[in-house]
Design a protein around this nucleic acid. Structure first.
Length: 205
DNA sequence: AACCAGGAGAGAG
DNA sequence: CTCTCTCATGGT
């Protein structure tokens, strides 16, 4: 059975907040680094870390791979959790290698990429899917704590569900569209944040 | 001045 | 499988 409420919720949020632009002009490499840096951190702090890397001319996989762990830690410090994030960024740069190798990566199947990403230290389901969606433009829905809460508050689900089950719920309820998926996820995050400060109701009628 | 942010991993039960 | 802890800065 198809869940129409999930699609209705998207249309409601889309009308309420309009188009949300998330990672449309950024390069896949920047999206990957950003996805690591933003873990359990506000985006505002991630921007400082990204600026540090760019200002020091260290914003490429090759350069970061040659960078000492200590220096990398100093550069990304404003994003917090810097010890683990530095080694995670190292790991992902080893996988990415360089821009020519990206041409190889982009030809792989989504399922293959997802497995490879998940095998990298520091990349779990959510980060892997964010990279696949926004970086590789694959039609994969990014599930997070917000989307889980939204579905519970709307009575779509009873209680918490495993990540992959929740994801297939969205996949089955929505038309397969990169634009839709990327917009929906951004809308859910934005909506949940504004809710805290202004207590707007979810009412979709 | 506690609490949380666009999580992941390791450990225990 | 489901909790619980840890990681750490920066903003309310």
């Amino acid at each position: 059975m198809k869940n129409k409420k999930i699609l209705n919720l998207y249309q409601f949020l889309r009308k309420k907040y309009g188009k949300l632009i998330w990672w449309t002009h950024e390069t896949p490499f920047e999206i990957m680094i950003g996805a690591i840096l933003v873990q359990n951190t506000q985006w505002k702090n991630v921007e400082k870390a990204l600026e540090n890397l760019k200002n020091n001319n260290m914003f490429s996989a090759e350069k970061i791979r040659r960078l000492s762990l200590e220096t990398l830690i100093q550069l990304i410090k404003p994003a917090g959790l810097y010890n683990q994030k530095a080694t995670r960024i190292k790991s992902i740069c080893d996988w990415y290698k360089d821009e020519s190798h990206f041409q190889v990566l982009r030809r792989k199947r989504t399922a293959t990429l997802r497995k490879e990403l998940l095998s990298i230290n520091g990349i779990g389901h959510e980060t892997a899917d964010a990279i696949l969606l926004y970086g590789f433009k694959r039609t994969i829905f990014v599930v997070d704590a917000y989307s889980q809460r939204l579905l519970i508050n709307e009575g779509v689900i009873e209680k918490q569900m495993p990540y992959l089950e929740l994801q297939s719920l969205f996949h089955n309820a929505l038309p397969k569209s990169y634009l839709l998926y990327s917009q929906y996820h951004a809308l859910i995050v934005h909506h949940s944040k504004t809710l805290k400060t202004s207590r707007i109701s979810y009412d979709t009628k």
